[in-house]
Design a protein around this nucleic acid. Structure first.
Length: 688
RNA sequence: GGGCGAGUAGCUCAACUGGAUAGAGCACCGGCCUUCUAAGCCGGGGGUUGUGGGUUCGAUUCCCGCCUCGCCUACCA
């Protein structure tokens, strides 16, 4: 509702400025005033024009108000303050629009249409977006930092799909990196396990985990500890020993990269087992993927070779003959000033003097593939089965029949802010190669890390250095085994919510209670990660994460449950109520208008207005790649509903028309909240 | 040294990208369960938006200087 009216007012203002002053502004500022007494929409445009028109803002505003004329959906316009133009809406028309919009929502949040089944209608011309998130090194259990990444990414995917976009979800797997190598070193050299024993261990761990259901028994937890041990081992010997261990580390890495040997097979076994665990962990949060491109295929299918040719042809890469980078193929960094004849010492090395390619180089190749500009493709095979669809993984020679990935028109890389430099390099390369459109649609969806408060670190039994004790947060480190594992946190949340549910839902059986507790726990976790804007560091603390009061997921879920209870007790449905309301509003609009304008009904009017903001907020989230706005919106809607709930007792309302209005208010709230929560990946429990 | 981000209530964060009286939650104090679930509601205290200037009708937001903090900045991957 709000989005349409805002656009309509913008259009009209544009017309007025054109005809009255012959002016065309790039953007017309239209905003929602801070107080309802200022109306429902407002523009400070007169202030902006004061200088060019050499008139007082008040005079301009007055002229614009006079020129606006009647506008559908609007009741009146008025001059306010020093030159604001405030717009007041036709209230019945607005509520009818909101009710209609809510009616068109499916009662139960529909499952988000998955990609990857290749069931898209032919000739689907929608924007094709590719979101990459999670991308955990497959050498250890996922931790809270990875949760933030996956939750942000998954939520953004839901928002894009809600806006009608076609989206592929990718989870990039660096299965040949130094982190995997470290665990391989741990198995082969610290534990002295050859390939066969590692294979046996992987199978045994899978069995043990399946039997006990305890994550501590699973392979990723085992690797977590081994990774930390190995990292420590590299630095714990004599200088000569450490030198040797470092060599072992890189020899192992190179063997894995090369492939076709036992070391590489160990890496494959471990990384695949850990990856499977990551997918299971993320599925607990309702997070699914369509495709898992792996580093090993990017290497062996020689993506780089094609990219190298293209980079040389376009002159993005040049061969350095002087200075410290002599003998390397390098690229000018974004924003760097290059002077003719001078050696750019600050250039980014893409190909080393020994001929090997750096990480950024491989990343450029991969991103050319993402946009369909590389001229090579992966092999594909099914890897993981979700209830609704299949997740595919890259391989050398895959199935003949497979969905098509890559070739996107817009990409979003959910990667923490520390990687902004390499990301900028890739964008720079694309631009330099002449792919300006692609560079413009390349979004580094960056976010800050999740750290631990010093208190939390101590709770977990880690030693906190004196210098760290005064800091607001301490960075987690997989290398040190320092952090909160994702499954542990989820378990802890479920235990806490289950305790509450057991106290409250005495009439329900165990399975029902567990289901509800799980939904609340996940709601709490996802909201916890989403309520903060992307570029603020989350200082993690169990006290905050396990809080279910105030601005939390459960608070919002509770409002939904309360609203739903009203309909259950009343023996009706939102649909029936909303349809009844539409009929009433069309026949007795005047009566409703009187209700809505009553001084004691401002909270009701405000609630309808809030409910009508869904598409506006969605657009804002997409424009800024910031899901936090929607989280905030959900909370505010829930808050206003709780307020309304306490002020108006619906079921005992005696005036029939007024009761319909109150019920309809609850109905739109329920539908809007349910929908917005589903976009945030948060379920609405049956009871709480 | 250079680049990016941050500094707002005791704590954790917002502020519709330059708008009207800077808002929430937590914590604290005081009220509200015989009415649709108290994971809730109402009320209260709490602010020189790090700092000094500038731009203008108007600055938490933009520009410059300074002070703190974090992260990037290797021919490692």
């Amino acid at each position: 509702m709000y989005l349409e009216l805002k656009k309509r007012l913008e259009t009209r203002l544009r017309e007025v400025l054109k005809s009255s002053y012959g002016l065309e502004l790039e953007t017309i500022p239209v905003e929602i005033p801070p107080e309802l007494e200022f109306g429902e929409l407002a523009t400070p445009v007169a202030f902006e024009l004061a200088r060019t028109l050499r008139k007082a803002p008040k005079v301009i505003a007055q002229e614009i108000v006079a020129a606006l004329g009647p506008l559908r959906g609007f009741d009146s316009f008025e001059l306010a303050g020093a030159g604001y133009i405030n717009a007041r809406l036709e209230r019945v028309a607005a509520t009818r629009a909101v009710a209609q919009s809510s009616l068109s929502l499916v009662a139960e949040a529909k499952p988000v249409a998955p990609m990857g089944e290749d069931d898209d209608p032919p000739g689907d011309e929608r924007a094709h977006a590719l979101v990459e998130h999670t991308s955990i090194n497959p050498n250890k259990a996922a931790h809270i930092g990875h949760l933030r990444n996956a939750i942000l990414g998954d939520t953004f995917v839901r928002l894009l799909r809600a806006a009608g976009q076609k989206v592929d979800v990718q989870n990039y797997i660096d299965n040949t990196g130094v982190q995997v190598a470290d665990v391989v070193v741990g198995f082969l050299h610290l534990e002295g396990k050859p390939l066969a024993e590692v294979r046996a261990l992987v199978e045994e761990r899978a069995r043990a985990f399946k039997a006990s259901g305890k994550f501590a028994d699973a392979m990723d937890y085992y690797c977590w500890d081994l990774y930390a041990r190995t990292s420590q081992w590299y630095a714990s010997g004599t200088d000569a020993e450490n030198e040797e261990r470092k060599k072992l580390r890189y020899d192992t890495l190179h063997a894995i990269e090369h492939g076709g040997n036992e070391t590489a097979e160990v890496a494959e076994l471990i990384s695949t087992a850990v990856l499977r665990r990551h997918l299971e962990t993320m599925l607990r949060l309702g997070i699914e993927y369509d495709f898992l491109p792996r580093e090993s295929e990017i290497l062996h299918l020689r993506f780089w070779e094609s990219a190298f040719e293209l980079l040389k042809q376009t002159g993005v890469l040049y061969f350095e003959t002087e200075g410290k980078n002599k003998g390397c193929w390098v690229m000018t960094r974004p924003g760097a000033e290059t002077k003719d004849g001078e050696t750019d010492e600050d250039a980014k090395v893409i190909v080393r003097s020994n001929g090997t390619v750096t990480y950024v180089g491989k990343d450029i190749a991969y991103h050319l593939w993402k946009f369909g500009l590389l001229g090579r493709d992966f092999g594909y095979k099914p890897f993981f089965r979700y209830p609704g669809h299949t997740c595919w993984i890259s391989c050398m020679e895959g199935e003949a029949e497979h969905p098509h990935f890559g070739g996107a028109s817009a990409i979003y890389n959910v990667i923490d802010s520390r990687q902004s430099d390499p990301q900028a390099n890739v964008i720079q390369a694309l631009r330099g190669m002449g792919h300006a459109a692609q560079a413009d649609h390349y979004t580094h969806f960056s976010y800050e890390m999740v750290a631990l408060t010093p208190r939390c670190a101590e709770e977990l039994g880690y030693e906190v250095a004196e210098e760290d004790r005064g800091r607001p947060y301490i960075e987690v480190s997989g290398r040190k085994g320092f952090g909160v594992k994702a499954d542990d946190l989820i378990d802890k949340l479920i235990a806490a919510t289950l305790e509450e549910v057991n106290k409250r839902q005495t009439g329900r059986d165990d399975a029902e209670r567990r289901k509800i507790a799980g939904q609340i726990a996940i709601g709490a976790l996802r909201y916890f990660m989403l309520k903060v804007t992307r570029n603020s560091v989350i200082a993690f603390d169990f006290k905050d994460a396990l809080s279910f009061e105030g601005e939390t997921g459960p608070y919002i879920q509770y409002a939904v449950v309360r609203a739903r209870n009203i309909f259950r007790k009343a023996g009706t449905t939102e649909r029936a109520v909303l349809e009844e309301f539409q009929t009433l509003a069309s026949k007795h609009g005047d009566e409703i208008e009187v209700f809505l304008r009553a001084p004691d009904a401002t909270d009701i009017w405000a609630l309808w207005l809030r409910a009508g903001r869904r598409t506006l907020v969605l657009e804002q989230c997409l424009a800024t790649s910031e899901p936090a706005y929607l989280a905030k919106h959900a909370f505010q809607l829930a808050q206003e509903f709780n307020n309304f709930y306490h002020r108006h007792h619906i079921l005992t309302e005696e005036d029939a028309a007024r009761k319909t209005l109150l019920l309809a208010t609850a109905a739109v709230t329920l539908r809007e909240l349910g929908t917005v929560l589903s976009w945030l990946g948060i379920e609405s429990p049956e009871a709480m």
